[in-house]
């Protein structure tokens, strides 16, 4: 099986010869920037450099996917959010939320992914990666920000969370526009050549939304995005940070092909919930293990995650920029060693 067959097979819940080791989360690290001569912050703004750095995760570190972009503010820039403070080891931060009042919501139109914000950079990087002969067998993952997280970026995250309790109609209006954008951007990414859309809806975590709130303010919108991806014959992976235990039944209802959880979750428990329904993706710790420990520790944790039943080996969150290359490689090598079924 090649890398695409393996990931698609795992997402289709079919038998694969060995678990895939991919990253639906960001892969830009300082070691890879040096190796590829493509650095942040330029690689966030220049499609050629974005493609170069993304490819390095595969060619240099051995990760069995290529993922763009490296940050989570692309979608917000499409709506006109101002970003900044980015540098070689720091992702752009959103400096000003663009939709803070009902009037601004009313006048906000759904952006065109081909022209708005940094979306065109991502789409062009995907086109270049998709036609790269060296990546013919490598799955191409495009991350989009999920509706609830995007609504928080557009409204101000604390305000959006309060709106759930105080101004539900307003936040639903933002969610509606965010969802329409997510669908357009996902379609454009698939059209450009992406195979998998990773829906990063980090703040719809169980740490933020209780089950009834998740069912009302996150799930229905995520489901619409998943459905749209499915209609375009793309694969979807839903990634949510933090403790997602109580919301897991609703996360399954989104219909995503894969559910990705962070290191706070017991992957064995997650697998039990997802078994036969959704592929389980995760969850080697990006900080305490991948960033701070030695390759032997990474190997041990990867082995543990595999034995606990993950279907797709991946970091629990984006790689921290200081992650040593040797540790990324150790995760891949451990998957080769222990992931044979």
């Amino acid at each position: 099986m090649n890398e695409k067959d393996r990931l698609f097979g795992a997402l289709d819940l079919e038998m694969v010869d060995r678990l895939p080791c991919v990253s639906p989360l960001q892969t830009g690290t300082l070691d890879l920037m040096k190796a590829s001569d493509a650095y942040w912050p330029q690689a966030n703004n220049d499609p050629k450099l974005m493609a170069k750095l993304a490819k390095a995760a595969h060619t240099i570190a051995g990760i069995e996917s290529v993922r763009v972009p490296f940050d989570v503010s692309v979608d917000a820039t499409a709506f006109g959010a101002l970003t900044g403070k980015d540098n070689i080891e720091r992702q752009p931060a959103i400096l000003k939320a663009p939709i803070t009042t009902p009037e601004l919501l009313e006048s906000a139109s759904i952006p065109d992914p081909q022209t708005a914000g940094r979306a065109p950079v991502v789409l062009e990087a995907i086109r270049q990666l998709a036609k790269d002969p060296e990546l013919k067998e490598t799955p191409l993952i495009c991350a989009i920000v999920g509706p609830f997280m995007l609504a928080g970026q557009l409204r101000g995250s604390q305000e959006a969370i309060m709106d759930v309790a105080m101004k539900p109609a307003f936040v639903k209006g933002i969610l509606e526009k965010a969802t329409q954008w997510s669908i357009l951007f996902s379609k454009a990414a698939l059209e450009a050549g992406a195979d998998v859309i990773a829906i990063i809806d980090a703040t719809s975590s169980g740490d933020v939304l209780g089950p009834p709130q998740y069912a009302e303010f996150a799930m229905p919108y995520q489901k619409r995005v998943v459905d749209a991806i499915c209609r375009e014959d793309g694969y979807s992976i839903l990634h949510i940070c933090g403790k997602t235990t109580k919301n897991m039944p609703f996360m399954i209802q989104t219909g995503a092909n894969g559910i990705s959880v962070d290191q706070q979750m017991d992957i064995g428990w997650v697998k039990q919930q997802l078994k036969g329904k959704v592929a389980c993706v995760g969850n080697v710790s990006p900080t305490s293990t991948l960033m701070y420990k030695k390759p032997a520790d990474v190997e041990a944790e990867t082995k543990r995650v595999i034995e606990a039943g993950t279907d797709i080996v991946a970091p629990g969150c984006g790689f921290a920029s200081e992650t040593p290359l040797a540790n990324m490689k150790a995760m891949v090598e451990a998957t080769h060693k222990y992931g044979v079924r």
Partner: peptide, 14 residues
């Protein structure tokens, strides 16, 4: 006790 969640807590804090 998980009778309420973060949105209500933030709104109360507000």
């Amino acid at each position: 006790k998980e009778e309420i969640y973060l949105p209500q807590v933030l709104a109360s804090a507000n």
